[in-house]
């Protein structure tokens, strides 16, 4: 084996181990998708969102650095929009100023706000490459949130995503760093 081949082999071994690491980091997505399918009964939404979340998490874990560090904060932040709509799905409707919203829809928006605040909080503590970290946390949290907000349909997902981005930006603008 030439020195170049040996170096290439070492590099390949390193990249494979990073892929394995990313794959392991993405394993919790499987029970989340199963939970979403069981609780929301929308496999047509849950499966593609879960697949995207699995792929994104694997890539972030393999990429490492700020991207890899964003996985756990992303899952933690995404817990709010995942669980709130499920908790409030039987709460009926809420009417404000003549406009009525379903409990699920409001829970998605509230969950998005909480997730955005969480993402902003974690990003403020990140010293290096904050932009990449925040983007990755928002992506993971958003996809986790989609798994819960599928029961509110596309409008719930859109409301959650909008609230997520706005509240994270707002948090960071108000408190730039820890």
């Amino acid at each position: 084996m030439t020195p170049t081949d040996a170096r290439r082999r070492s590099r390949r071994a390193y990249e494979l181990s990073r892929m394995r690491l990313g794959f392991l980091a993405a394993l919790p997505v499987i029970p989340l998708v199963a939970f979403s399918m069981f609780a929301c009964g929308r496999p047509d939404f849950s499966l593609p969102a879960g697949g995207a979340l699995f792929a994104v998490t694997t890539w972030l874990g393999a990429r490492g650095e700020a991207y890899g560090r964003a996985i756990v904060p992303g899952f933690l932040s995404g817990a709010a929009p995942l669980l709130l709509p499920l908790a409030l799905r039987t709460s009926g409707h809420c009417c404000v100023g003549g406009v009525c919203w379903s409990g699920c829809m409001l829970a998605c928006v509230a969950g998005g706000v909480l997730a955005g605040l969480g993402a902003g909080f974690f990003a403020a503590a990140e010293q290096r490459n904050r932009g990449a970290f925040l983007g990755s946390v928002l992506l993971v949290a958003g996809l986790v949130g989609v798994l819960g907000c599928v029961m509110a349909g596309l409008s719930g997902v859109a409301g959650m995503a909008l609230a997520l981005g706005t509240s994270a930006t707002g948090y960071l603008a108000a408190r730039p760093a820890h």
Binding site: A6, S10, R11, A13, Y14, S17, R18, G64
Partner: peptide, 9 residues
């Protein structure tokens, strides 16, 4: 060297 880099992570 291959093992070292496979375990570096």
């Amino acid at each position: 060297m291959t093992k070292l880099f496979a375990r570096a992570s």
